[in-house]
Nucleic acid binder design. Sequence first.
DNA 1: AGCTTTTTTAATAGCGCTAACATCAATTTG
DNA 2: CAAATTGATGTTAGCGCTATTAAAAAAGCT
Lengths: 349, 349
Amino acid sequence: MSRTKKRSGGVTMDHVAREAGVSLMTVSRVMNNVPGVKASTREAVMRAVKELGYSPNAAARSLARNGAGRIGLLYSNPSAGYLSQFLVGALDGAQTSGALLVIEKCDISPDSESAAIGRLIAGGVAGVILPAPHAESDRAIAALREAGVVAIAVGTGHARSDAHAVRMDDFAAAAEMTRHLVELGHRRIGFIKGAVNQTASVERLLGFETEIRRADPPAEPLVEPGDFTYRSGFEAAERLLTLEHPPTAIFASNDDMAAGALAAAHRRGLDVPGDLSVTGFDDTPLATAVWPELTTIRQPVARMAEAALRLVLQESRDPSRRDLRALIDQLLPHQLIVRASTGRVSDNS
Amino acid sequence: MSRTKKRSGGVTMDHVAREAGVSLMTVSRVMNNVPGVKASTREAVMRAVKELGYSPNAAARSLARNGAGRIGLLYSNPSAGYLSQFLVGALDGAQTSGALLVIEKCDISPDSESAAIGRLIAGGVAGVILPAPHAESDRAIAALREAGVVAIAVGTGHARSDAHAVRMDDFAAAAEMTRHLVELGHRRIGFIKGAVNQTASVERLLGFETEIRRADPPAEPLVEPGDFTYRSGFEAAERLLTLEHPPTAIFASNDDMAAGALAAAHRRGLDVPGDLSVTGFDDTPLATAVWPELTTIRQPVARMAEAALRLVLQESRDPSRRDLRALIDQLLPHQLIVRASTGRVSDNS
DNA sequence: AGCTTTTTTAATAGCGCTAACATCAATTTG
DNA sequence: CAAATTGATGTTAGCGCTATTAAAAAAGCT
């Protein structure tokens, strides 16, 4: 008696149905774009929806669909830019497609990963999106497969034989970046590798080496290890810059390491790009938060997340194809972003 | 007939109840820590839960609770570090407390904000968390109030009279940072302001000025405008460093602007911290991704998000207090993080 | 013992939505 | 012209969980 309305602002399908003068089911059909509704009816429903400001209740939908449309996302790497963009993309996609994201955190240890995967499976998700580091985990993917859950690897270096993949062409992008440097006249080029357990790192290195071999006049590659952290980039650059014949350009496998290289150069009093060109990879927010702003490769992270979401949804909808395993490998376009950190090689090197 | 189990991995309360030999409702009570369950029963249920790897279905729970436990989060500012940390904190909290996060994006325009708020309300959330820029929006908070939805402002400069607040003490933190610089011997200190429409910016400036006035021997403040972007920090620093008597330290109101100041200093060939100390604010990942790493204030973003979540949940549970409006203002502790970007003032300045 | 008061447990009715089937008119066909 | 075929909509039965009410068991009182 105290509260007149059960819930403020709770517009349900029932209201819409009444307003449009149709049955509940028709509204559901319209909301899900199911064919077999007369155009005029559909329009009337749409009008009612707009009128009442109705928006479907994701929880109820997920429940009714019995888990289809509920999809998991495993993350571990709160590495600023990447995760943030990825989450935003995924959330966006979830909103649009009416999916329910179940986001599960874990750290890098295999145990923690397994536990998280277990929780996801027990939670009854239809599919799981595995970004960056987890996309390489055979164990995780095997567990998912066994449970009959669709797995999507995002950001791996190449397609997988046991899961769908959404990724970019790391090889081509690295080659493109290398060509950019070669065209600027650089012939002694340092390369800072990424974490070795990620296939994307390998592809980037391969792209670099392949393109270097093509250079005419020939170019000399100077490869240093790294692990995608700022510190490792700093240290690798220090090693490169203290060589007897230091490189005139450094190609770091990601923006964090490029920022480290930048710092190392500045510390030695080198001007970028006057004395040394530096390039990154990924185009995280960091790329434009350092000086000079980094020439880098734009990885369409948000779009990848969205694509992954769509893919899970689509694949989990019809279980028929599940075993035929027409594995999908979706490649998204990247882009070379030339900013202020690269320039023509100077004469006095 | 083809699929033996309705859904792979779908462990429901029913299973747990059967396993533990109790009724469904008892399991629910145990899961929600409702008192009135015999200890031995509770224990048996817990064992069954663990045994079966049961985890409650957030969607179903949200539905059954009729929206209580469904809480909204409005974001707009994909500014890398902050959002990422905030989301992680909120998602974490949601997981623990069994809430269902409804995340809604909008851009900075008032129209877009109103629309997003409208969707949230129509979605029947019990409360809405408003981080950084939206926390200042009177319009948004008014709309929420009117709909009877609990609003929590996060990261404002001071408590609000119309919404609960979760925040840090920007004034005290800025004063603390200023004291740090003064103690290092700096007497000409530049300050780069944050966006003027955020009260936190004002508090930080006030904290700075108050502490400056306390300095003995007296110190001279040099205040420049900024808007929390890297570029504005760069430009403000350029202005400061081209003064006839440039400052020996620059206190930027956030890390992005500090990174800009760092770049400006490097460009002029200044050594940090040898010739110039630079400090940031927030301790975003950027703080450790520049060289030298920034002395800054650690803002417990993730914890703030979690606290906000808890607060919404708690407040929305009993609507009785809703009108008494015992507004809560929860202050979370910050921390001065001293890194390599600040040092004792040099003699030859 | 017989009764009321406290615990503790069980049963029932939805929350908002969708899948699957049922219905009913408007066609088409033998 | 009755029967079979469409196309558009309506009905019914849950999805997994929680609130609420009813019931049973345990404990306290005269």
